[in-house]
Computed example of a mutant assay.
Amino acid sequence: MAKTRFNTYFPFLYYIGEFFVILFCSNLMLYLTFSVWSVYNSFFIAFWLVMSLSFRSHVLGRGIEYISLVKSTLKSLFFFSGIVAIINLFFFNFQFQLSTLGIAITLFYFLMLCYRLCLNLILERYRAFGGNILKCMIVGYNSHGVQLYDELLKFPEFGYRSYGLFTFDSKARKKINNIPFQGKITDFDDSIFRKYDIIFFSEKLSFKNQDYLVQKADEYNLKVNSIPDLVNYDVKNFFISKISSVPYISINKLPLDNFYNQILKRSFDIVFSLLVCIFFLSWMIPIVGLLIKISSKGPVFFI
């Protein structure tokens, strides 16, 4: 129940915090420029919140690296800045001093980064002390299960808790590296699944046993995850893809495979092209045309 309440209210509280950050920066901008509140400010605050919501910024993820959080935040900020620049240029046409604009943008970047990093740190401390945890059933009394169990103990801030390993083998040893042995999963009543939030099972299990766990997960509305043999390899990310009905695991992912990066690159291309047209081609083309007219006969443009 507590976890359900947390998942319900946290997104709302998260965006309230972002609202106050951008509201503070907007008011600072007005103060520095001796301006008054206008539809311009309201529009861009709403635009940031809608953009942040569409990118699901509140989903910080368990165990997310801080460098990844910084990168994702900077991408959002750069994308937002590009859109603001385009809209301001063609619709609002507000004129600010470069120093004033630089102060406001720098402060906005700094405060938003601090907000997300501090919030992630608070969530990690909260989970480390037992808040918003996920109870994990680890099935597989082998190297996969042992490694996952050790990682969960090593990083309590991820918010996962496990009390030992289950197996389908009744002859399993009682101890591996002093890890508690919970017993054979089929010896328990089905009510055992009500005590957990997520299931991890080793890929080394038979397909019959894997199918049994998937069915139980569906029946009791649990998340279920398979631990692949790739756990022993030093790779950054795994991505599950599929060709027709045949699944496969992608070991790497190119930057432009991410839809968010595609939007960012396209926005940069448009903004950069507009800047080149406005500040470079606007004066270069007339000069080139004049030089052509002076040095040769005939029209400048051939149609």
Rank of each mutant, 00 (worst) to 15 (best):
F268R: 02
F6H: 04
L32P: 01
I86W: 00
F188P: 02
F80M: 10
Y14L: 15
E18F: 04
N252F: 14
P11E: 12
V288Y: 11
N88V: 05
R194K: 10
Y163V: 09
E157F: 05
T167W: 00
L123P: 00
S54E: 12
F207V: 13
N41T: 11
S296V: 08
T4Q: 11
F108A: 08
A217P: 02
V36I: 14
I86D: 02
I251Y: 03
P255G: 09
Y248K: 13
L101C: 11
K175W: 12
K135C: 11
G140L: 03
Y212R: 03
K184D: 05
S143T: 10
F55S: 06
Q262W: 04
Q182P: 08
A172N: 07
F201L: 02
I270M: 10
E157Q: 09
W37S: 13
N93D: 13
L13S: 14
V84Y: 05
F239K: 11
D229I: 09
I185K: 00
R161M: 15
N225D: 15
F168Y: 04
I285G: 01
Y66F: 06
R125Y: 10
K175Y: 12
M51Y: 04
F90G: 01
G298I: 05
V36Y: 08
I287H: 04
I105D: 07
R125P: 14
I67W: 10
Y126V: 00
P11S: 10
K175T: 11
D234M: 03
I287M: 06
R127H: 03
S76I: 15
A104Q: 15
L148N: 00
N88M: 06
S99A: 14
F91D: 07
F43D: 04
P180F: 02
N221K: 13
M51W: 03
I285S: 02
Q210F: 05
N209G: 12
V70K: 01
K154L: 09
S202E: 04
F10Y: 12
I67C: 07
Q147D: 14
I45V: 07
W37C: 11
L89C: 08
I122H: 02
P286K: 00
I249D: 15
Y248W: 13
S42T: 14
T167N: 01
F188A: 04
L77R: 01
S244F: 13
S202Y: 00
A172I: 05
I105S: 06
Y160Q: 10
L74C: 14
S162L: 02
N261V: 13
N209D: 15
D169L: 03
S38M: 15
I292G: 13
S57R: 00
K208E: 12
V276N: 03
I105C: 08
N261G: 14
R194D: 13
L256F: 09
I263K: 03
L148A: 00
S296H: 04
D269Y: 08
V84R: 02
G17L: 07
N225K: 14
R56M: 09
V235Q: 09
L49T: 02
Y260S: 15
L256P: 12
M284W: 09
Y15C: 05
G131A: 07
D257P: 05
F19C: 07
L74D: 10
K223A: 15
L23S: 13
N258Q: 14
R266D: 14
Y66E: 10
A217D: 04
T186L: 03
T100I: 15
L113G: 00
M112G: 01
G63W: 06
V50E: 11
